[in-house]
Simulated assay, not measured.
Amino acid sequence: MSLKELNALAANRSARRRSGGKADTRDNRAALGFLSPWMLGIVGITLGPLLYSLYLSFTNYNLLQSPSWVGLDNYERMFGDERLHQALKVTFTYVIVSVPLQLAVALGLALALDRGMRGLAFYRSAFYLPSLLGGSVAIAVLWRLVFGASGLFNVILGLIGIESSQSWISNPDTALWTIILLHVWTFGSPMVIFLAGLRQIPRAYYEAAATDGANVWWRFRHITMPLLTPIVFFNVVLAIINSFSNFTQAYVVSGGTGGPADSTLFYTLYLYQEGFGNFRMGYAAAMAWLLVLIIGAVTAINFWLSKRWVHYDD
């Protein structure tokens, strides 16, 4: 090939690179244009308020005057706040009890629905409905009526020979358990996820195990649960995060007080009382960041422990 031809070939390649570069630039600008609403939203609605709340956690702010810097005073105050300690106790009790119960009920119903019964779509929708309604104010109000002194729960106890006239939501020993029961009742969302995971397990595994004489419990223990552990882990993480952030149910059932005797004083409810009831927004912001750290730490522990029991079918 002559020198002239080589120069022409190089010029053509250079022209193609320049045109390709312009096209890439146009594509990048178009992509940034489409992404700009999301980026503005993440900065203005999420990141901005997040950083401002971190700043407020180091201030004394009552919503009516400008915040004044107090350093670590809000965080130091937490060590001597007895109501904060009670809120942490109530919240951790709620999480430790309600999450396993809810997931156990969800898994049990998912296993029942996975047997191929008639009307599966109807049952799946009916069981999922509580998850849509459980966090609403209307259901929480209904729960107050059900567990009131003359509520449906006492009526059912009377039908089986147990006479009771107490208000279960007004008793410090039972009030928290009514909210736990409400949370367990909203099992629909994890149930649907469990059902989807069960449908992904190859039926050939069960057929081979049945051929070898394995009973139902053996198949559940050695086939279903190991292959379902990623779904269990996913539901556990989501359920714990949702439980720590529970507010509506506790607020409505307790009338916004956390009573009786602070037995339903959830962490988020106490945070709300401090910020919007007592106008101590700086302290409420510090509480919010403590909750972020708690949820982050619990989630990190779950991920660390998952290496020991979660099995991925690679």
Rank of each mutant, 00 (worst) to 15 (best):
L176Q: 07
W177H: 07
W143N: 04
L195C: 08
S165I: 00
I201W: 04
D173L: 14
Y205G: 00
L132N: 07
I193A: 03
Q166N: 05
T178E: 09
S167E: 13
S136F: 05
R203T: 11
V184W: 03
F153S: 04
V137C: 04
N154H: 05
F187M: 15
I156W: 00
G134A: 12
G197Y: 04
V146R: 01
E207I: 09
Q200N: 15
V141F: 15
V137W: 05
G197Q: 05
N171F: 13
G161V: 03
S164P: 11
M191V: 08
L157E: 01
S131K: 03
G161L: 15
W177I: 08
I139R: 01
A196N: 10
P202G: 08
I160N: 06
P202V: 11
G188L: 05
A204T: 14
L152S: 04
G148L: 03
G161H: 06
F147W: 12
I162S: 03
P202Q: 09
P172V: 10
L142S: 13
N171C: 12
N154Q: 04
S131H: 07
Q166H: 14
L132M: 13
T186H: 10
I139K: 02
A138L: 15
S136C: 09
G188I: 10
L182Q: 11
L145P: 00
A196D: 14
S165N: 11
A175T: 09
T174P: 11
I179P: 01
I193P: 06
G161P: 01
L176G: 02
W143Y: 08
R199G: 13
L159D: 11
F153Q: 01
R144H: 04
L198A: 02
A204S: 11
M191E: 08
L157P: 03
F153I: 09
L182F: 00
I180K: 00
N171E: 12
H183L: 13
F147Y: 15
